[in-house]
């Protein structure tokens, strides 16, 4: 089997087949369940509020996906180092690039599982509202580059910082900073700094697209810039991860 596929399979197996990985997925599912159950109490929601709810769920799924990605990413290289399995991995007939691409494959599987896990929730809160299909499509379209970007950032930090705790803490700080638009309302982001932050932040690009598509029913043509921001983020983080793994010291 291709070494990249082999490493990706091992990474995916740790998430899907280990008790620890399944416990993470359980925790994420419980968070989404609690969020959904909180919404049940309000049965007088208008259609607009329903769209708002779907938007909230999409933002939460992306944030949770990012959280899962940085946790998985931070463990990739530094975790191997701490478990003493990095040296055997480097001595195996695989290049550093193949290792990092394999680890990235694990991230792709992790996000795919998270995305599939979120679909019943998106359906449950949004099937009688507006733009359900768009919600599902745009969650994949924008959520994927944003979440994988966080995962690749985790891999890069994991290779550079040499221990899981430092890599995880730094990744989480970055994640919290970038997901702050979920907490700050649009009015708080109207200052010059806020606008710049919104324009450059890939997470803002994702949530603003969700807002635009689900609540305001705007077309794909209006999301191009945001999609480009998310793709640049993904490409930049992928390049950083590859470079960090290639240049890491044993």
């Amino acid at each position: 089997m291709n070494p990249i596929a082999l490493i990706a399979r091992k990474e995916a197996g740790e998430l899907l087949l280990s008790t620890r990985g399944l416990a993470w997925l359980l925790a994420l599912a419980v968070i989404m369940s609690v969020l959904s159950l909180l919404l049940v109490s309000n049965t007088e929601l208008s259609l607009l509020d329903n769209a708002q709810v779907v938007y909230m769920v999409m933002g939460t799924v992306t944030a949770l996906g990012g959280l899962l990605a940085v946790v998985l990413g931070s463990d990739t290289i530094a975790g191997e180092r701490e478990r003493g399995s990095l040296l055997p991995l480097l001595l195996a007939p695989v290049t550093p690039s193949q290792i990092v691409f394999g680890k990235m494959g694990g991230q792709v599987v992790g996000w795919s599982v998270m995305y599939l896990l979120s679909l019943p929730y998106v359906w449950a809160v949004g099937s009688s509202g507006q733009n359900l299909v768009q919600s599902v499509v745009y969650l994949a379209l924008l959520g994927t580059p944003v979440v994988l970007g966080f995962g690749f950032l985790g891999i890069a930090l994991s290779a550079r910082l040499r221990n899981v705790r430092s890599a995880l803490l730094t990744s989480l700080i970055m994640l919290m900073l970038m997901t702050s638009p979920l907490l700050l309302g649009p009015s708080l982001r109207q200052s010059t700094i806020g606008k710049w932050f919104d324009a450059l932040n890939p997470f803002s690009a994702a949530v603003n697209t969700f807002d635009s598509v689900v609540i305001d029913s705007q077309p794909l043509g209006m999301q191009t810039t945001r999609l480009v921001v998310a793709l640049i983020w993904l490409a930049a983080m992928a390049a950083l991860a590859v470079r960090s793994v290639r240049k890491m010291e044993i």
Partner: peptide, 16 residues
């Protein structure tokens, strides 16, 4: 009704 407990409850309890 746009957010129905009949639809959310099975998902919220079923997935975990």
């Amino acid at each position: 009704p746009v957010v129905e407990s009949a639809r959310i409850l099975p998902v919220a309890l079923g997935v975990p």
